[in-house]
Simulated scan of single mutants.
Amino acid sequence: MHKFLGGVTAATLTLAFASEALATEWNVSLWGKRRAFTEHVEKLAELVSEKTGGEFTLNISYGGLSKNKENLDGISIGAFEMAQFCAGYHPDKNRTITALELPFLGVANLDEEVAVSHAVYGHPAVQDELAQWNAKLLMTSPMPQYNIVGTGDPREKLADFEGMRVRATGGLGKAFEAVGAVPTSVTATEAYQAMESGTVDTVAFAQHAHLSFGTINQASWWTANLNPGTVNCPVVVNIAAYDSLSDAEREALDSSIPEAIDHYLANYGELLKKWDDVLAEKGVTKVEISEDELNAFRAKAADPIRAAWIADMEGQGLPGQELVDLIEQTLKDKRAAN
């Protein structure tokens, strides 16, 4: 009997260890702190765990695994399985998705931002380029149009931007440069210090980031309607890690993306509703740029920068024009469907 029970115990332990070994844990590299920008990743982790009975978990780290500018490198070498990054941090590594950071694309809301992002992510040239870094594009982190907070007197005219030191990356940086500003690409986590020290006069962010990284606390004014564009920040997974998932795990992950995005959009919508109250509470003046000044900004920054980007991409053998056309067609299709 003792021998039989010993066998049963051994078998039970073996099954327990086997079950534990079969559990899948992924490390996820984000930065900063939990905020509107990361809510879809948090929701994804929750849904994946629920659907797999806890057998597939996403362990989310805010800065503990990598610096934000090095997340794509970490994915490339398999240092972690999932990460978020922004195209403007290293445009040479993800040239094709910088199409989504071109100024004045005309994206009107977060739903349209999701649509154009995922359309571009689905293009074969984009997928091939990210595959060079062992990265599979999973979902976007949709952000509204960027606007700037600043110190000192409000900058209400294009002429006021001359010499303005602005934290702006990617296509946004090029847009401000086109009107005489001096862009710098310090990371989001460095923006407050850069503003506090006077390294920059202004910072271009979406609303959540002005809150999360404290730049709103340094500001005396905010542009309500400049809307020059936004940055594009995908969530990617390591291809080998994705391919090693079981069918059930992969289904749990893939099927959770729409709900994670919906959760993100609902959460961000609540933040936007409160934005005017935040400005009033902190004594930040809302600056409305005149339509004439906005048109002058577009004339200098939209078409010339877009044409230069297309020529640059085509010169490197990438479908620049095709990607811009895809964005425009996706916007038309999205609006027609609504």
Rank of each mutant, 00 (worst) to 15 (best):
M143L: 15
G6E: 10
L265Y: 05
V126N: 05
C233I: 03
N147K: 09
E177S: 12
G317C: 10
L272S: 04
D128A: 15
L44N: 01
Y264L: 04
V200Y: 09
L44W: 02
A209N: 11
R306Y: 00
P154A: 15
L13F: 14
V235S: 01
A79L: 15
V120R: 06
Y192V: 00
D325C: 00
D325R: 01
L323Y: 05
L102F: 09
N238R: 10
T12I: 13
W26P: 05
A224W: 09
E46Y: 12
Y242R: 05
D73F: 03
A18R: 06
G269R: 11
W26I: 03
D73M: 05
A204H: 10
G74D: 03
V8N: 15
H208I: 02
D128Q: 15
G320P: 02
E249L: 13
A79Q: 14
A260H: 14
A194S: 13
D254T: 06
L65W: 08
Y242V: 03
L294Y: 09
G320V: 01
F176Q: 04
A252Q: 08
S66F: 01
K136Q: 13
E177P: 05
D333A: 08
E328N: 10
I97Q: 03
P91N: 10
V41R: 11
A241F: 14
S29G: 08
Q145I: 07
L13A: 14
L294T: 04
S61F: 15
T14L: 15
D153Y: 12
V186Q: 13
I216E: 00
A302N: 04
F297K: 03
K33T: 00
L245S: 06
Q316A: 09
L326H: 01
I148V: 07
I60L: 09
T223A: 12
A241G: 12
G106T: 04
V48G: 02
E314N: 13
A16T: 13
F176P: 00
G283Q: 12
Y242N: 06
V41Q: 08
H40C: 02
L102T: 06
L47M: 05
Y242A: 03
D243V: 07
T285A: 15
S61H: 15
Q316P: 03
A188C: 11
K67R: 09
T151C: 08
T12M: 15
